[in-house]
Design a protein around this nucleic acid. Structure first.
Ligand code: MN
Ligand code: MN
Ligand code: ZN
Ligand code: ZN
Lengths: 142, 142
DNA sequence: CAACAGTTTAGAATAGTTATAATGTAGTTT
DNA sequence: AAACTACATTATAACTATTCTAAACTGTTG
């Protein structure tokens, strides 16, 4: 469970001063046991539910993007018109439950290390990410 | 190199009649040696460049989505606000060149088969897709 | 207190996408 | 052929996630 000083560090390192609103955002983002996978509207909803304060969408967007640029959040690309973010910034893979559209972190033992034969000259591998789409047994998904 | 009758089959199987405009779209999409990875605006630009005819965006969107729903095109999720589509509908993985934002199909020998230990009860794996981000050697990418 | 620097905010602007509704087209029936 | 019919095409409006903007606000310093 992270402390307030950690939030302040995260904000400062992202070039943001630790204001009241931003600390509230940190609380909702990082005061958690498990990874939080969210869209901006998920986050905004969480903020207005957990706190009785409203924070402007602009502030939420700004803070999330500052965190993402500094590496305190990861952006995840799934088939959607909305951006997803992830509080788990370690290298990891995902299940996507197509029934609920929920993202789930893969444990380390789900996939063995992937070897890539890089046949692109002059290009270096920056990341290797796997997305495993799952759905209910019975349902016929495309 | 596909024939006109193949285009007609693709259209008919997607529930669309083979009209002049739709056949033009098929030509730009499928009369190719290599895979075509594109956004709707890429496709629209290609159409107006290769043909001297203008086709309404609405028709392009409708046709692409009908093809996608029937499985004649695949939608690819990369970190972007735009949808990407792929004329290669076989199961395959991608490189994403972060310098140019270009998608490149992985050859079969780039990645060995991935074994997933599915620990989600009641859920079946629908697909496993890998995205390998690459960038120039020198450049410092995040 | 006044000046100032940075923050928050509501709302405007933007852009990709989807929906709508009027018009066009091409066969079919009479 | 004229009228009829069904679908296609199109311009444009509507929608929505995101970004931008500019004004109000806050807290600090002299
Ligand atoms: Mn969500
Ligand atoms: Mn493109
Ligand atoms: Zn995750
Ligand atoms: Zn591909």
């Amino acid at each position: 469970m992270p402390k307030n000083s950690e939030f302040i560090d995260k904000l400062r390192s992202s070039g943001l001063r630790p204001t009241k609103q931003r600390l509230k955002i940190c609380e909702v983002l990082f005061k958690r046991d498990k990874t939080f996978h969210f869209t901006i509207s998920d986050l905004a909803k969480n903020i207005s539910e957990q706190l009785n304060q409203k924070i402007s969408l602009a502030t939420v967007y700004n803070t999330v993007h500052a965190f993402k640029n500094k590496g305190h959040l990861k952006e995840i690309s799934i088939n959607s018109s909305q951006s997803y973010f992830d509080t788990n910034i370690t290298h990891h893979h995902h299940f996507l439950d197509e029934d609920t559209n929920e993202l789930i972190d893969c444990d380390n033992d789900v996939i063995e290390k992937i070897n890539v034969k890089n046949n692109l000259t002059g290009k270096k591998i920056k990341s290797v990410e796997v997305l495993i789409k799952v759905a209910s047994d019975n349902q016929n998904q495309k």
